Amino acid sequence: MDTQSREVNLDWIPASGFQLRKAGVQFDAARVDGDDGRRLADLLETMTGGDPGPVVIEDYARRSVYFLLPAGSTSHRPWPPGVTRLNSGPSHVSYVPVPALRGRTWPLSWRFPPSGPGRFVHPLLLLNAAALLLK
């Protein structure tokens, strides 16, 4: 694990490359594919003054954007079309790709890296921004 990840004590971030993490343990995620996901990340950046919480982008295939949210926060909420909830429950399990903070992680990278333990994208902020943007 590199120095930056040790400073914020994020043991769910791999030391190199990328790994799949089970949603619902350290975090849930909301995935928005393509240009809509990138526009949503831009909107959150503007709304939060540049620190919306951890966001991972994929530069291949669907060009997905993964917004990492507190564990348990994506279920029981009506998300707009275009948002895929990644969480785990009694009848399903989801996995989220997580890149290292440095080094070769293609096709994944951090659009906004984690800034501290327990710091995630605010679910209601993301939900409202997505509802605005993904009509």
Rank of each mutant, 00 (worst) to 15 (best):
S115D: 04
H76I: 04
V25N: 13
V25Q: 12
G53K: 07
R102C: 02
R85W: 03
W12M: 03
W110H: 03
S73Y: 13
L132A: 12
H122W: 04
A15H: 13
P52T: 06
M1Y: 14
N87P: 00
P113L: 07
L43D: 06
G116L: 11
K135A: 15
D11L: 10
T46R: 15
E45V: 10
L68Q: 03
G24F: 09
A41P: 10
Y95W: 15
A23Y: 03
P52W: 03
H92G: 01
L101P: 09
A131D: 09
P113Y: 07
P52Y: 05
P81R: 06
R31P: 00
G103H: 09
T84K: 04
R77C: 03
S94C: 14
H76W: 15
V121T: 04
V55K: 08
E58K: 09
H92Q: 12
R77Y: 02
N9P: 05
L44D: 10
S91F: 14
R21G: 00
F112H: 08
L43T: 06
E7C: 11
D28C: 04
G118D: 12
A131P: 02
F112R: 07
H92I: 06
A129R: 05
G103E: 05
K135P: 15
P90G: 06
M1S: 15
G34V: 13
P123Y: 00
R21W: 00
Y66W: 10
P90C: 01
A100I: 06
L68V: 02
G50P: 03
G37C: 01
P81F: 00
V98F: 07
T3W: 09
W12L: 04
R6K: 12
L101E: 05
P90L: 07
S75G: 12
R62W: 00
P70L: 14
S109I: 02
V55D: 14
D33E: 11
L40Q: 05
F18P: 01
M47I: 10
W79K: 04
L134G: 15
R63S: 05
R62G: 00
L101T: 07
A100S: 14
P80R: 09
W106Y: 13
